[in-house]
Design a protein around this nucleic acid. Structure first.
Length: 600
RNA sequence: GGCCCCGUAGUUCAAUGGAUAGAAUAGAAGUUUCCUAAACUUUAGAUGCAGGUUCGAUUCCUGCCGGGGCUACCA
C-alpha cells in the first residue's frame, strides 16, 4: 500500500516535472489526526523542481495520484502538506492482508529478514556483595527488552552478564560474616542469600565507621584513620589471600557467592529474565592482564618508571589510562578488556556487542572501545554502550549508605500486593482459583513496574514515584493489559456464540466507522513505527505505540458495540479486528518482556 | 576548571527540521438496560533566557542561566 503510493509519487515527479526521485527516497508520514487523510507528503523541499509554490505543487501531485494510483481516493493540500486519503476498500484489503485469524507474528506483513550474525547483549551485571535494587530493575528491563527486540528483528541474540565477583567489596562482606556471623546461613536464618550477604556488607561498613570514629577520638586525622582502620586492613589482607587462593578464604568466597547467586536467580526468575552465558570477573581479570602484556610488547601501551602500564589516549582526547598497577594487579578496565576479548572468542560472528550500563560509566566505555581499537580489533566499532539515566526518588537520590535504596525484591512484592488490593476492591477475581489469582497479581504488578521503567527514554534520568507507578490508570502497563483482556473476552464470547471469524466475506463489509479506520491504520503502521527491520532498539517507542493502540482499542470498544450489530459479516469483521488488536498488543508487550492475562 | 547528558502544562512523560507542541495524571463537567467502567466523552493549562542558520526550530549552531553525571593505582 505504502509502496504503491511511493511509486506513484516517483512517477508523478517524472510525468509532471521530468524529475527523478527514487520511490525509496520518498518520505511519507502518517497524517496528523486533525486532518483528513492517511499519509502525508511534504512538498516544501520541491519548489525548485516544480517551479511552483508548495500548495500548487501539492495539488498537481494530488491530482496525478488520484487519477493514477488506485488506493488514493482523494487528497487535500494545506500549505506544503499533501494529505492522501485512501479508499475504504484498500483499508479493508490491508486488514485482510494482516489478519490471518491465528497468529499475527506469522502474517507476511510482519516478517523480517533473518540475519546470520550474533548480537551479544550484556545486562544486569551486579556485584556479589549486596542484593539488586531499583536501578538494576531499570537495567534488567531495558537490556532484556532490547534483546527481545533484536531477536524479533531477526538477529541471533546471546544474553550475557558479567558478574563482579571479586575485589575488596566482596572481602568486606566475607570478613564481617566471619566476625559477626556466628555461622549464619540462608537456611538457618531464612533469609534470601543475597540479602544475607548484603547484611554483612552493611555490618562491615558500620564497624569500619566506628573504628574511624575511635581513631579520630584518639587524635588521628580523619583521612589517615580512613586508611588505617584495622578492619579495612584486614579486608585488604583477605583480598591478598584470595588472590593467592588461600584455601580457607577461597572456600568461604565460593560459599558466600553461591548464596548470592541463589538469591539473584530467584529475582531474575520473578522478573521473567534469563541469560545464555555468564562471565565471571574472577576469570576475566587474568585474561585481561595477559592481553595487556601482549599489547605492551607490541608497543600499543607503555610502561612507566614505577612499573605500571598505561594506555596513552591523548590522540583520542581521552587522556592516559592506567591498565596495570605497579605491583602488576588489574584494574576495572583491565578486566573489561579481558571480558570483551573472551566474548569475541566465544562468538566470532558477532556483529554487535551491547553493554547495558548506567550513564555514569560513559567515559569508561569510551576509553574501553578506544583501547580495543588500539589493539587492532575492528569489531571495536561494533561495541555499543546502551546507556541509561539514573532512577531518582521523590526524596532525592538513591544512596545505599543512607539506606534510601529501593530493594528489587521488596518492590516487586509491593507491586504484586497493590495489584491484589486493587483487584479485590473491584471484585475482579470472582471465579479464579487461588493459583490463578496469585498469577494475575504477579502479572499485573510486574507489568506495571516494567512498563513504568521502559516507557521513559533510556538516556533520561527518571523519577520513580512508588505511588504513581502503582497507579493502574492512564499510560500504564495494567491499562494495556486490560485492553488485551477485553479483547480476549470478546473472542471467548464469539466462540460461545459459534461465530467463526476465519471466513469473513470482505466484500460484504461496507462502510467503516472512524474508530475502526483508526485501529486498522494503527495496526498497519506497526512495523514502520517499531522499525523492527532496522537496528534501532527503543523500548520507549514500543511502549508509546502499544499504549496508543490500547487507547484506540478502548475507544473502539466503547463506540462500536460489537454484539449489537445485526449484520453477521460486519460482526465477524469487528471480532477479527479485536483479535488482530489483541495479537498486536501481545506481540508488543512480548517485546517489552511483559506478560498479558487472558482475564482480569 | 575541562568533557558529556538533560531543562517542555502543577506533576510524570512524548514530539525522523514540519501543520494549531501531543499524552497521562492532578483540577472542572459529564457518560453505565450493553459484549469487562481498571473504561469513555468534554474542558482548562507548557517549549529556561538571548541571539543565529531557513520557507519553517522543542529539535541544528553560539552564549548565558539551572539540574545531573564523569574527570580513581575503587569495582
Amino acid at each position: 500500500m505504502e509502496s504503491q503510493i511511493k511509486d506513484g509519487i516517483s512517477a508523478a515527479f517524472q510525468a509532471l516535472y521530468t524529475h527523478d526521485i527514487a520511490a525509496d527516497d520518498v518520505a511519507l508520514q502518517p497524517t496528523r489526526k486533525d486532518f483528513e487523510g492517511t499519509y502525508t507528503f511534504l512538498t516544501f523541499p520541491f519548489g525548485r523542481v516544480s517551479k511552483k509554490g508548495p500548495e500548487e505543487t501539492g495539488n498537481e501531485l494530488g491530482e496525478y495520484l488520484k487519477a493514477n494510483v488506485s488506493v488514493v481516493a482523494d487528497y487535500n493540500t494545506v500549505k506544503g502538506f499533501l494529505n492522501l486519503v485512501l479508499s475504504e476498500n484498500s483499508q479493508v484489503d490491508q486488514f485482510a492482508a494482516m489478519f490471518n485469524g491465528t497468529d499475527i507474528a506469522a502474517s507476511p506483513v510482519f516478517q523480517v529478514e533473518k540475519k546470520n550474525k550474533t548480537v551479544v547483549v550484556e545486562y544486569s551485571s551486579p556485584n556479589t556483595n549486596k542484593p539488586l535494587h531499583l536501578g538494576h530493575l531499570r537495567n534488567i528491563s531495558l537490556g532484556n527488552s532490547v534483546a527481545r527486540i533484536l531477536e524479533a528483528s531477526g538477529h541471533k541474540v546471546v544474553k550475557v552478564q558479567i558478574i563482579n565477583d571479586r575485589g575488596i567489596h566482596i572481602c568486606k562482606s566475607m570478613l564481617a560474616w566471619q566476625r559477626f556471623g556466628n555461622g549464619e546461613t540462608p537456611a538457618s536464618s531464612g533469609m534470601k542469600g543475597d540479602h544475607l550477604v548484603g547484611k554483612y556488607y552493611v555490618a562491615f561498613d558500620k564497624a569500619y565507621k566506628e573504628e574511624i570514629a575511635d581513631l579520630v577520638a584518639k587524635g588521628m586525622a580523619k583521612e589517615v584513620a580512613e586508611k588505617e582502620a584495622p578492619i579495612l586492613k584486614a579486608a585488604q589482607e583477605m583480598l591478598k589471600k584470595w588472590e593467592a587462593k588461600d584455601p580457607e578464604v577461597y572456600s568461604l568466597w565460593e560459599t558466600m557467592n553461591s548464596w548470592v547467586y541463589e538469591g539473584f536467580d530467584a529475582t531474575y526468575e520473578r522478573m521473567g529474565v534469563d541469560f545464555d552465558k555468564l562471565y565471571y570477573e574472577s576469570d576475566t581479570y587474568l585474561i585481561g592482564r595477559d592481553r595487556v602484556m601482549e599489547g605492551l610488547e607490541k608497543g600499543v601501551f607503555y610502561k612507566k618508571e614505577d612499573g605500571s602500564v598505561w594506555a596513552d589516549l591523548t590522540e583520542e582526547k581521552l587522556d592516559q589510562k592506567l591498565l596495570l598497577r605497579k605491583d602488576g594487579t588489574s584494574v576495572y578496565m583491565t578486566q573489561d578488556i579481558g571480558t570483551a576479548l573472551m566474548r569475541y572468542d566465544d562468538y566470532p560472528d558477532l556483529s554487535q556487542l551491547i553493554y547495558t550500563v548506567g550513564n555514569e560509566q560513559e567515559h569508561h566505555f569510551r576509553v574501553l572501545f578506544a583501547i580495543l581499537k588500539r589493539l587492532g580489533y575492528d569489531w571495536a566499532e561494533a561495541c555499543y554502550h546502551l546507556s541509561y539515566g539514573m532512577v531518582d526518588l521523590p526524596e532525592g537520590k538513591m544512596k545505599s549508605r543512607e539506606g534510601t535504596v529501593v530493594d528489587a525484591d521488596d518492590l516487586m512484592a509491593e507491586m504484586a500486593g497493590t495489584a491484589k488490593e486493587r483487584t479485590a476492591e473491584l471484585g475482579k477475581i470472582d471465579g479464579f482459583t487461588e493459583e490463578q489469582a496469585l498469577k494475575l497479581y504477579e502479572t499485573l504488578g510486574l507489568g506495571a513496574l516494567k512498563y513504568f521503567l521502559l516507557k521513559v527514554d533510556p538516556r533520561r534520568s527518571m523519577l520513580f514515584n512508588p505511588a504513581d507507578s502503582i497507579d493502574f490508570q492512564g499510560n500504564t502497563g495494567p491499562f494495556i493489559q486490560f485492553a488485551f483482556a477485553r479483547n480476549s473476552a470478546i473472542l471467548r464470547k464469539a466462540s460461545q456464540l459459534g461465530i467463526d471469524i476465519t471466513g469473513i466475506d470482505y466484500d460484504n463489509v461496507s462502510e467503516l466507522h472512524e474508530t475502526e479506520k483508526d485501529l486498522i491504520q494503527a495496526i498497519g503502521q506497526y512495523k514502520e513505527k517499531l522499525n523492527l527491520a532496522s537496528d534501532k532498539y527503543s523500548p520507549a517507542i514500543i511502549a508509546q505505540y502499544v499504549y496508543d493502540l490500547a487507547k484506540s482499542y478502548n475507544r473502539f470498544y466503547t463506540e462500536v458495540k460489537i454484539f449489537d450489530e445485526q449484520d453477521l459479516e460486519k460482526r465477524k469483521f469487528h471480532i477479527a479486528l479485536s483479535a488482530l488488536t489483541a495479537q498486536t498488543i501481545k506481540l508488543c508487550m512480548g517485546l517489552l518482556g511483559i506478560d498479558v492475562p487472558e482475564r482480569m
